[in-house]
């Protein structure tokens, strides 16, 4: 069952794991952007989640506590962004970029004494009998609980945005903050909540990297995952299930290129590493060609600050 030294079952199983951080971060950013806020600080919030989660897990000995700590760390950093952009009305793009740099630096400082430590292990959720079923076992039953949680979050975000009043208000605020304000909705409060939710999910994704994927702490551990998450949101046209597809596609390409490298492929490594980003550009060009923003489904008020003037 191997193709050029690559086992497809293992490939699929491992891409599901590899996609968890970018999937969670992309979903958080999707919700934030649906509320009309462009937070480019995903990378910074992820790495804060990675270090906070790591520290919490090491001290408490509990991976669950670690993930909670990671989410709180990401949310805390996102509140800095919320304060600067929603209260002080600073430019969102510049603030987001600064947030990334700030997060990278702060996490490096916090992680000084944590290099080379092993975090408590996050094991598989289901019993071995299920996991040993051929093909289906590794793909469907073989994962830790975070993999299943990440899919649940996709469903939850989809349902809330589509079917609940909270989701409707959130979309309305992202579509036209003026109109939402005129109808009496508290635009900045709603955006604040969306930003914090986005931060928490990014933190959760970051914690997954330091607690499960790697699992240890090194500086700059997220290595650009936050930027891929940002691309996935656009790739997904701000739709949760498409974000899942996007994340698995990117996760798949990442895993595939690692496997190809390991299998001694003759294609130079650099081309393989480039491929996820090339795919992003291609998809974006195809999706936006000849059609307006409406076709892309972008929130109309994305990136604009709101200030109730009158």
């Amino acid at each position: 069952m191997d193709f050029g030294g690559i086992n497809p079952v293992i490939l699929i199983a491992s891409l599901m794991v590899a996609s968890v951080p970018i999937l969670l971060a992309a979903l958080g950013e999707l919700v934030t952007e649906k509320a009309g806020v462009l937070n480019l600080g995903v990378e910074g919030m992820m790495i804060m989640g990675a270090i906070c989660g790591f520290i919490t897990a090491v001290h408490s000995g509990s991976p669950v506590a670690g993930f909670v700590g990671g989410a709180l760390g990401g949310a805390a950093l996102s509140l800095v962004f919320a304060f600067v952009t929603q209260v002080l009305l600073a430019n969102q793009v510049a603030t987001g970029l600064a947030l990334t740099l700030f997060g990278l630096g702060l996490s490096s400082l916090m992680g000084q004494n944590y290099n080379g430590i092993k975090p408590p292990l996050t094991g598989a959720l289901l019993p071995a009998t299920l996991r040993e079923i051929p093909v289906v076992g590794p793909i469907v039953f073989g994962h830790d609980w975070m993999v299943y949680l990440s899919i649940l979050v996709v469903a939850a975000v989809w349902w809330v945005l589509k079917a609940t009043r909270l989701g409707l208000i959130l979309r309305a605020v992202g579509e036209s903050h003026e109109a939402a304000h005129a109808l009496g909705y508290r635009v900045r409060l709603i955006r604040l909540g969306a930003i914090a939710f986005g931060g928490a999910l990014a933190g959760l994704g970051g914690a997954y990297i330091s607690l499960v994927r790697v699992p240890q702490w090194v500086d700059g551990i997220t290595a650009g995952a936050g930027w891929i998450a940002l691309a996935i949101v656009v790739f997904a046209s701000w739709k949760p299930w498409r974000a899942l597809i996007g994340a698995y596609l990117f996760g798949g390409i990442t895993v595939l290129q690692l496997n190809l490298q390991a299998a001694g492929s003759r294609i130079p490594v650099e081309y393989l590493s480039m491929s996820p980003y090339l795919v992003t550009i291609l998809v974006l060009v195809i999706m936006s060609s000849g059609r307006g923003r409406a076709a892309l489904n972008a929130p109309a008020a994305l990136g604009q600050n709101f200030h109730a003037t009158r």
Binding site: R165, L168, I169, R171, A172, E175, S176, A179, A180, L183, Y185, A294, N297, P299, A300
Partner: peptide, 13 residues
């Protein structure tokens, strides 16, 4: 009004 939402959603808001 919100252009990307449908009539019923706009009314509900």
């Amino acid at each position: 009004l919100f252009e990307a939402l449908n009539v019923a959603e706009n009314v509900a808001l």
